[in-house]
Design a binder for these strands. Structure first.
Lengths: 353, 353
DNA sequence: ATGAAAGCGCTAACAA
DNA sequence: TTGTTAGCGCTTTCAT
């Protein structure tokens, strides 16, 4: 048994010729559409088998005008957050018969622009975009205007107000975390996060809080507000977005604060804050109650185990896939945002004050 | 300024017409190849700009016969190992002007087969494959025979002996870890890993040790061998590949073993072993020295900080990209395996006995 | 330097 | 049910 060693692949026409039917008959049975007599069907299938035919998705995409592919444009696939989300996304989108092209932007607006352009060039059927914030390239808006279905993920950047979003309900999540501490009797609750410059207007609902950290901070503030706990700006510790920097910021920020609890609003700052508490030798939960974000491996390996607010990672990816699928199927049907709820995992780092 | 709202995109022919040149002239300047007079060039570029032309990569792939895309077929993008590797891979491969299609197999041979077939259908230029072990589908071999460039990653499965491999030098890595303990005076060194059924023949070099765990176990054995330390099979603890199961296995396996040191040969088992030691209340490094695999976040957050053998994650991805690029460029040039070295990060969980 | 024309392998509209 | 015919948008000879 030998195959032709020439790399030129077998086409529908080849199969048709071998099966002694017309090209369109062969195309119909191979494409599994239209109609064909059992006789023809068998001949074609046999010929295809014999010649080792397998379809050329490129040609199909070309003539259909659809690539059966979507793009996922995200900051960094190697982060635990995005890698799990993407897993959910790809699994779900494959069920719909599409593939996913993943691009990392490293939160660089220029890379984002190039990536989006490249994907447009590839004629993807749609895009999931975790945009660079506060403002990404204008590219996404341009593509959306052209009619390309786009779903925003995790956050919305300026100028993309009209695109549907799939994200954690950041504000609600932070409220949950804060409320937990309030329920435990805490009133001096510090928060470590990336504080936006317009923090003063954060409780003003007119101000759109685009970045997740800002929305989470708002959740913190509104929980305090509802509990009639006065807001002390010194309790809001501004940190950079790397765990070493965050650790330093928390070490300094916490000094002389008489806080009885601390919330870190994302995984990186949670890591940094934990380091800071370790270095300061502050005992949890006795001296301080601590709530982190994201259910990272280490939060159950250290002692005490850390109470965290966890996100439905794969669920977020699945939701993004579903929303995008809907947009692709019904481009004109407006789609509402999908905000998933976080869940508080109460462990050992928090206790009644 | 308005664009035509019809979604039909602007083609080379459209640009040519607008620029009042022939289709081929327009194609040449847009494709940046062949020659064109400055005058024609300007007219075409201006027209393209004006009409909002952007190329159709599908059509290009179709006519070139190359998709400018590679496939990465791996067990699970959401694992810390593969997500970092893939990051290195995609970054590097994009520099070469290609994109990456990522497929998760969950170590299922059937999914692997379907995925490979699908990628062949897409006419990818090449593949990076972390095959299902011990034997994957026959699909990879088939595609390789057809002339598709394939690079194996992390491991080799049966029947794929002739394909080049990019991986950690697993055996050497485990040797490093074991030697470290030997240097500290340990002689009763336990190892937690997935033990192959043919463990008895492990030191026989004729037996190809395909799975990384087996190769790592071999590294452990040969380090002991070289140090003239007799091998005690009871020190080899067989664990399942999930951290809870591994924790149980280690708890039982360690009982009455008078081991002074323990090695875990992968990240999952390291996690499990650490849990076991915690539960047993075994103090590190006083009662037991412990070496884990992979530099996971938590290994520096727990106390004592864990001594680990770390892999060059992105480097592995970059190496895979480079090797595949070479195979694509020179399909007939045989390529040697690329084995990267691990590095021991000595921390606080190991000490002189 | 430029243009005409023939594919790449498939889908789809239309006839028979 | 079957076959004929045109494309999809690009690249690539081959003349001019």
């Amino acid at each position: 048994m030998m195959t032709n060693s020439k790399s030129d692949s077998v086409t529908v026409a080849d199969v048709a010729r071998a099966a002694e039917v017309s090209k369109s008959t062969a195309a119909r049975v191979l494409g599994n559409r239209g109609s064909a007599s059992p006789a023809a069907r068998n001949k074609v299938l046999a010929a295809a088998e014999r010649l080792g035919y397998y379809p050329n998705a490129l040609a199909r995409a070309m003539s259909e005008g659809r690539a059966h592919t979507i793009g996922a444009v995200i900051p960094d696939i190697s982060s635990p957050f995005f890698s799990s989300v993407v897993r959910g996304l790809t699994d779900r989108i494959r069920e719909a018969g599409l593939e996913v092209l993943i691009i990392n932007t490293d939160n660089d607006a220029e890379i984002e622009a190039h990536s989006l352009e490249m994907l447009a060039t590839k004629r993807v059927d749609g895009l999931v975009l975790a945009p660079v914030i506060p403002h990404g390239s204008g590219m996404a808006r341009l593509l959306a205007q052209r009619g390309l279905p786009i779903v925003l993920f995790d956050r919305r950047s300026e100028g993309l107000q009209d695109l549907p979003l799939v994200a954690l309900n950041h504000e609600h999540a932070a409220q949950l975390a804060t409320q937990h501490l309030i329920d435990l009797g805490h009133r001096r609750i510090a928060v470590a996060t990336q504080v936006p410059s317009w923090v003063g207007r954060l409780l003003d609902p007119a101000q759109p809080a685009e970045r997740p950290s800002a929305q989470r901070l708002r959740g913190y503030l509104s929980a305090l507000h509802q509990a009639d706990i006065p807001i002390d700006m010194r309790l809001i510790i501004n940190t950079p977005y790397d765990h070493m920097g965050a650790a330093d910021a928390v070490m300094h920020g916490l000094a002389g604060l008489d806080a009885t609890a601390l919330i870190a609003t994302d995984s990186v700052v949670t890591h940094g804050a934990f380091l800071a508490l370790q270095r300061l030798g502050i005992g949890m939960p006795d001296e301080l109650s601590f709530v982190g974000f994201d259910d990272q491996d280490w939060t159950t390996l250290v002692s005490p185990q850390i109470t965290v607010l966890t996100q439905p990672l794969r669920g977020l990816g699945v939701a993004a896939a579903d929303l995008l699928s809907r947009r692709i199927a019904q481009p004109d049907e407006p789609q509402a945002d999908v905000l998933l709820h976080g869940e508080l995992l109460i462990r050992q780092s928090t206790r009644r004050v």
